[in-house]
Every structure is written in structure tokens, then in C-alpha cells.
């Protein structure tokens, strides 16, 4: 399992360099930004699912909390974008702390409760009675801080930090402990691992990553509505991309995003009428033949995937 820094860098650096240079040769910057955002979200989901086995269907709740943490800081505190980014992280972390008791649940119960919690936050944010604070269902406009090039760069920085975090988890004592918890929490406890604390750390790291993704999303697009920031497809995509590529690795979620989100856009442009069908068939094939994701094609043959 333990690998040198070089192998993770060999995956991360070309990806980051390609995404940094891509706007020079490809004009659809929003599409490139979306790739970065899903790469961040997939790795963030990887931190909680890949290393502890909790599958958060309401992961978008942290993303939305981050987006609104950013927006509220800009609108009400007149915060600079970077300070607002910090507020986005804090907002998602705070929601993570509030939802920590959900970790007492497991399996489908956790997934459903997490989904319900995300919906509850969405309902509060979009409540017309809170229009003076959140702008309710009418959405927010953050034109005063609109800076697509800078926000693109910050998103790349967040992606770099997220990739480094996952590489660290793969190698650090904590990552080994988290994988032990995922395999068997009772046995992990008897190995001396503080199970509740380990799960909580992974949960909060995962929330922080989604919150920062939400913050930079808000900054980059500058105009959005509650249903945009809390769109359930963010959760679904992050889950599908991670599972398709292979959880608990750094490379797996990257492959998942590049292949599936790439395909999503190709289908969306060429044959949008078949999008649901093609995507559905792909997911069925994945569950049937590659339940551990693309990375398992290598691990089954004895190769280690960074």
C-alpha cells in the first residue's frame, strides 16, 4: 500500500499542468472548471467513502453550504474572495460537525439520513422568509468578486491540495487506521484505533473539501440559485465517478471523472437523447463486472494503484 511520493506526483502533476494550460488552447473555460470541480468532489467523497466506507448521498449539502458560506461572506461581510473561501470551508465544517451524529448510522440508513440532512439545509437556504439573509429562492449575484481566471487558479490549488491529502491518507498512519475501520470497526478498535475519532476526522476532511469546492464554484459562476448549489446530481456524479474509477486510490476517481464526465459531455453534445440510456447501461455494467472500479483491473493482476 505504501508508495513513494513520486508515484502520486506522477499522477497529479501532469493532470494539474494539463488543467492549468488547457484554457490557453480550449475556450470553454466553464467546462474545464467543471472538470476541476468534479475532480475535487470525487476526491473529497473518496476521503470519506474510500477510507471509511460511508457513502454520503447528501454530499452536495457540504457543497451547497460552502457555496452559500462564500456568498453570505461576500454579501454581508463584504469579504474578499479569499476570506470568503475560508468562510466557505468553515460553513461546510460547521455543517459536518452538526451532522457528526449521523456516523452512528451505517449503510443505507446513513445514506438516507445524510440525503435528508442535505435537503433540510436546502429548504432552509431557499426559504423565502430568509430572503434578507440568503436571498431565498431568488438566488445570489456576486458580480463584485467575479474573477474567472483567479477563481480557476484557486480551484486548481484546491485540487492540488485535495490530491495531496488523498496521497497522504494512502501512506499515513491515519489512512491505514481509516482503512482498518472500513474493513472491520470492531477489530480496528481492538487494534487500538479510536474508531469514532477516525471516522469524524475523515468526515470533516471530506466536508471541508466539498465546502471549498462549493465556495470556488460560487466565486467562479457568481450567479446561482439554491437549486443549483444543492443539485443532487453533484452527489450522484461524485459517487459514480469515484466508484467507476475505484475508491481508496488517488488515481481511480481521477479516471472516473475524466472518462465519465468526458463521455457525459460528448454524449450531451452529440446524442443528448440517448444520454440517460448510455449512462444507465454503463453504470449497470460497472456494478456487474467491475464493482471495485477500473483500478481493480490492475489490483486484480497484482499491480498497486497509487
Amino acid at each position: 500500500m505504501r508508495r513513494g511520493v513520486g508515484e502520486y506526483a506522477a499522477v497529479a502533476l501532469p493532470l494539474l499542468a494539463a488543467l492549468a494550460l488547457a484554457p490557453l488552447v480550449y475556450s470553454n473555460e466553464l467546462l474545464l472548471f467543471n472538470f476541476i470541480m468534479f475532480l475535487i468532489l470525487a476526491q473529497g467523497l473518496n476521503a470519506i467513502y474510500g477510507f471509511t466506507g460511508y457513502l454520503p448521498f447528501g454530499y452536495v449539502g457540504f457543497f451547497g453550504a460552502g457555496a452559500y458560506g462564500f456568498a453570505l461572506a461576500v454579501m454581508h461581510l463584504d469579504a474578499s474572495p479569499l476570506l470568503a473561501m475560508a468562510c466557505a470551508g468553515v460553513a461546510a465544517l460547521a455543517l459536518g460537525v452538526v451532522l457528526t451524529p449521523l456516523l452512528r448510522l451505517s449503510g443505507a440508513y446513513f445514506a438516507i439520513a445524510n440525503l435528508a440532512a442535505a435537503q433540510a439545509v436546502y429548504q432552509v437556504i431557499s426559504n423565502p422568509a430568509l430572503q434578507d439573509i440568503t436571498k431565498g429562492p431568488y438566488g445570489v449575484t456576486l458580480s463584485s468578486v467575479f474573477a474567472p481566471a483567479l477563481s480557476y487558479g484557486v480551484a486548481l490549488g484546491i485540487l492540488a491540495a485535495t490530491l495531496a491529502l488523498v496521497a497522504w491518507l494512502r501512506n499515513a498512519r491515519l489512512g491505514l487506521a481509516l482503512q482498518a475501520i472500513r474493513e472491520d470497526p470492531v477489530s480496528a478498535a481492538m487494534a487500538g484505533v479510536a474508531v469514532v475519532r477516525g471516522r469524524t476526522i475523515a468526515w470533516l476532511l471530506s466536508a471541508l473539501i466539498a465546502g471549498l469546492a462549493g465556495g470556488v464554484f460560487a466565486w467562479h459562476i457568481s450567479v446561482f440559485y439554491p437549486e443549483t448549489a444543492f443539485d443532487l446530481s453533484f452527489s450522484i456524479f461524485a459517487i459514480v465517478f469515484t466508484l467507476f474509477g475505484g475508491a481508496a486510490t488517488q488515481l481511480g476517481p481521477i479516471l472516473g471523472v475524466l472518462l465519465l464526465y468526458g463521455l457525459y459531455n460528448v454524449i450531451g453534445i452529440t446524442v443528448p437523447q440517448y444520454f440517460q440510456l448510455i449512462y444507465g447501461v454503463l453504470i449497470v455494467l460497472l456494478v456487474l463486472f467491475l464493482p471495485d472500479g477500473l483500478a481493480s483491473l490492475a489490483t486484480r493482476r497484482g499491480f498497486r494503484v497509487p
Binding site: R173, L176, M190, G192
Partner: peptide, 13 residues
């Protein structure tokens, strides 16, 4: 996890 990693976790924590 490998046999060594199984034991390492206990030895570490």
C-alpha cells in the same frame, strides 16, 4: 490489507 499491515496497525495504535 496485507498480513504485515494488519499487525502494524495494532503495533502502531
Amino acid at each position: 490489507l496485507t498480513v504485515r499491515e494488519n499487525v502494524e496497525i495494532a503495533a502502531t495504535y
